[in-house]
């Protein structure tokens, strides 16, 4: 017994090191391997609060560009409103529930990272505003990411510039779909893989979100085709997609709440169980 204690006292430094190394390595490996299981995330009182303060200061510096972006978006919406084909037909609301299938929460990016392989954003709205994990995040130009973790006042978003994102996307004109992911190289481009060779594509075609996703509504802009790679072995294309969004400069974003999401998931689960 004495010897055991002696051993522990003698090597206390090494034992402490190994113990803490085990903890931190476990956290690292866990954060790389599982979806939405991060214990250490910036959606919490401390870092959310600090980022919000810093962002408040920083915001004043680009008020002008933010205003310009908002004015542009307003103009776009106005033109949509004025140029409706038949102004007498108003799209019907879902009269049973009395609500639209999609609802939108306005939020602000208070922290943005884009220089590592797994990038996350922090937003200043959380569970109090009804934000839940796996909701889609967009802005007026295109998609931004998917909500990963939430706290009462803040939430983290897994950016499209993240090796672990997989989003269903399609060619706008032909409905052929593939999955969107990032190879970690450039912040302006993402990759669309598993697109069937049957699809007729050319450089400059628009890529939008596909209808298979329960996170994003259909037809939200992503980007345009910049480069086409033909894989000799498989029957699939890999495309470089140039993003409409500048992911390094994000201000206000919209979080999409889909009312029928749980219904679809439950239905698909029932299908699988049978």
């Amino acid at each position: 017994m004495q010897q055991i204690f002696n051993f522990i006292f003698k090597n206390s430094n090494r034992i402490l090191f190994l113990l803490l190394l085990g903890i931190s390595l476990a956290l690292t490996i866990q954060s790389h391997s599982f979806h939405r299981s991060k214990i250490i995330s910036s959606a919490n009182f401390l870092s959310g609060g600090v980022y919000e303060r810093v962002n408040n200061l920083h915001e004043y510096l680009n008020l002008k560009t933010q205003n310009e972006a908002l004015a542009l978006e307003n103009a776009k919406l106005k033109s949509l409103l004025f140029n409706r084909k038949d102004t007498t037909v108003v799209k019907k609301l879902d009269s049973l529930k009395g609500v639209k299938p999609e609802d939108i929460v306005v939020s602000k990016v208070i922290h943005n990272s884009y220089n590592v392989y797994e990038n996350y954003l922090t937003l200043n709205s959380g569970e109090i505003d009804g934000v839940k994990p796996d909701m889609g995040v967009i802005n007026d130009l295109g998609i931004v990411g998917i909500i990963e973790n939430t706290s009462p006042k803040y939430s983290t978003v897994i950016s499209i510039l993240n090796k672990r994102t997989q989003i269903n996307a399609k060619i706008k004109k032909s409905n052929h779909f593939g999955s969107l992911n990032w190879n970690g190289k450039s912040t302006g481009y993402v990759q669309l893989t598993d697109l069937p060779r049957l699809a007729l594509i050319k450089i400059g075609d628009t890529i939008v979100t596909g209808g298979q996703s329960v996170i994003f509504p259909e037809n939200i802009n992503i980007g345009t085709i910049a480069k086409i790679y033909r894989d000799k072995q498989t029957n699939f294309y890999t495309l470089d997609v140039r993003l409409f969004n500048d992911m390094t400069n994000l201000g206000h974003v919209y979080i999409i709440k889909r009312k029928d999401r749980e219904e679809i998931i439950n239905l698909e689960k029932r299908e699988k169980d049978e």
Binding site: L25, L27, S31, K38, I40, S42, S113, E118
Partner: peptide
């Protein structure tokens, strides 16, 4: 790590 959403990478490197 808490502030940069990086799991435990900074902790390991510092240790």
């Amino acid at each position: 790590d808490l502030f940069s959403n990086s799991g435990g990478t900074h902790a390991t490197a510092c240790l």
